[in-house]
Design a protein around this nucleic acid. Structure first.
Length: 547
RNA sequence: GGCCCAUUGGUCAAGCGGUUAAGACGCAGCCCUCUCAAGGCUGAAUCAUGGGUUCGAUUCCCGUAUGGGUCACCA
């Protein structure tokens, strides 16, 4: 039909759509396998929403024996950033998300359905655009920005739908010879879709989360190929997801409104549509109202925030899984140590309304996650964090490796595990006072409680050192503590004291508090017996002497 | 404004025509306990709203309100 025009516009495109169909055949995968993709712009920034999506992409592909690939959408030069691809790859690797196909660095790619970088697929898009022109389904548009603005203003005045469509699409109705003439003349142009849609017709679309949605058909003659020869998102989406044989497109719900366009594009190109999963936007509470979590205003919108704050990647993913499928939480409770891959994500169970990102809840998830770690893992991951963000602490941890692990191991075994660490940045608070360097080289503020009289404190400590034996088992140890309490006029048992508060100066807890505070400066610590044992008698004496 | 989407406690949510409307976080109290953390128990707190449909609506339909998205040669 418009072969002459098509050849004139794309003289160098020699391949046909059929060629590409052959180059990228249907994938040979088991029944039900999902092919998903994570398709970011190479801005280098990973939004927590992207992480949410990438995780879903990964999980769905993995659990069905499918493929999850990375595609870089760099058709907008303005948004690009140096090293953007590496930043994305590494940023996701931190959360154990890796791809089966796609770029593996700025310069390398793997997989048979590439190239996976859109700017390298120019010929492919142009081939399909050319074919559309040939079929009379696309055309060159010579309108300038000013003309487009004028059209828009007119439409706004008339209070009708703005855009390039119908009678407003002036270039659409140019004759082929007029088009050829203007192209030859060198007038700048872009390629637009010649939309076959009608405003009065409706289309039905099915989203895996939201179910059926009805829209009026698309009538806009949207841009397919921009003046730089690169495609717009919409066109690239149709071509790429078809050619890369994507079965499930997972993307943010902001794309829902362009569904009519995408349906039309697939139709016009003769492609079968994939399934769609439009994920809810992660929101943020802003003084009582919800708003989209924002890169500019909210540090927690960035995936790197969690690393910076020492929140383990496992916890972040678990939290995200929580908002993905709310039954994950129960599953996790029953399978605290199980690998994520054992949980089957159900796309239909994803909530359709955007969840408020809850840092407090994340904190709780994180506490539970860390509670499943061994002392060794806490040491390693904590140290890795500290090396980057708290060098001083890292040095101490390394210098006293065994001691640190032993301390971290207090109340960590058995079925009632200590849950006092939610992030690595709390490690300092939990460990520092036990290192001699910190204890002796700094001013210690002793938070005495009931017993504050210096002479009495000294007497208690002296007496305690007389009876303390590091070889005692816990019961013996505690009995000795009670003996000391009794000797100084304190009740052996808390209950005893409560029954008769007048009869005693206090109870055994007040005595152990004296020991605890003298030893650490703090009223609250993990199990005192274990701490004493780990410090050893000599260091206990030194610490007491400091007072 | 047009078109879409959403709406169960403060937050995340289960629910899919009949329920004392789960559970989790947070909050409060109690218990346990040498402190803290954990754990156990208890409590306060929810179906946006008006109409239908129905013997019966949180659940289905319509309107309203509120929140969100989108209307680019950005993705």
């Amino acid at each position: 039909m418009s072969k002459e025009l098509a050849d004139l516009i794309f003289p160098n495109i020699t391949k046909t759509p059929e060629d590409y169909e052959k180059m990228y055949p249907a994938r040979n995968l088991p029944e039900g396998a999902m092919v998903t993709r994570f398709a970011p712009s190479p801005t280098g920034f990973i939004h927590v929403g992207s992480l949410f999506g990438a995780n879903l992409d990964r999980r769905l592909a993995s659990q069905t024996g499918g493929i999850c690939y990375l595609r870089i959408e760099d058709t907008d030069g303005k948004r690009e950033v140096d090293d953007g691809i590496n930043l994305i790859i590494n940023g996701l690797k931190v959360f154990n998300i890796e791809f089966d196909e796609g770029p593996t660095s700025e310069t390398e790619q793997k997989g048979n359905y590439g190239p996976y970088i859109q700017s390298e697929r120019k010929d492919i898009y142009q081939c399909y655009a050319k074919s559309l022109i040939e079929k009379g389904l696309a055309y060159p548009c010579f309108c300038t920005a000013e003309e487009l603005n004028a059209i828009r203003e007119r439409q706004e005045k008339l209070k009708i739908v703005p855009g390039y469509y119908g009678e407003f699409a002036v270039c659409r109705n140019l004759s082929e010879s007029q088009m050829i003439e203007r192209v030859k003349k060198g007038d700048p142009y872009i390629i637009r879709l010649k939309s076959p849609g009608s405003m009065s017709k409706k289309i039905k679309f099915k989203d895996m989360i939201r179910g059926q949605i009805e829209f009026p058909e698309n009538v806009q003659d949207i841009v397919l190929i921009k003046s730089d020869g690169l495609p717009t998102y919409h066109f690239a989406h149709a071509v790429d997801d078809h050619l890369m044989r994507t079965t499930h497109v997972i993307r943010g719900e902001e794309w829902i409104s362009s569904i009519p366009l995408h349906v039309q594009l697939f139709e016009v190109l003769g492609f079968q549509m994939p399934q769609y999963i439009h994920t809810p936007t992660i929101m943020k509470d802003d003084e009582g109202s919800k708003r989209k979590i924002s890169k500019r205003k909210d540090p927690e919108a960035s995936a790197s925030y969690y690393k910076d704050n020492g929140i383990p990647k496992e916890a972040v993913i678990d939290y995200l899984m929580n908002i993905l499928n709310s039954n994950f939480e129960n599953w996790r409770k029953q399978n605290p140590h199980a690998d994520l891959s054992e949980f089957k994500v159900d796309p239909h169970k994803i909530s359709s309304s955007g969840a408020l990102f809850d840092l407090v809840k994340l904190n709780d998830v994180s506490k539970n996650t860390i509670a499943t770690f061994t002392a060794e893992k806490i040491f390693e991951d904590g140290l890795a964090w500290a090396k980057e963000y708290d060098k001083d602490l890292a040095d101490l941890m390394e210098k006293h490796k065994d001691f640190t692990i032993n301390i971290l191991n207090i109340e960590r075994t058995g079925n009632k595990v200590r849950k006092d660490i939610a992030k690595w940045s709390e490690l300092r608070e939990n460990l520092a006072y036990l290192y001699d360097e910190v204890y002796f080289e700094n001013e210690v503020t002793y938070e005495w409680q009931l017993v504050t009289d210096k002479t009495e404190i000294k007497a208690i400590l002296d007496e305690y050192m007389k009876v303390y034996d590091e070889n005692d088992d816990k019961d013996t140890w505690f009995n000795k503590m009670k003996d000391v309490a009794e000797k100084f006029g304190f009740a052996r048992e808390v209950k005893e004291y409560k029954a008769n508060p007048e009869g005693f100066k206090g109870h055994v807890g007040d005595i152990s508090t004296v020991i605890r505070v003298a030893l650490t400066g703090r009223r609250n610590t993990p199990d005192l017996y274990e701490i004493l044992k780990n410090l050893g008698k000599a260091r206990i004496e030194e610490r007491f002497a400091k007072i």
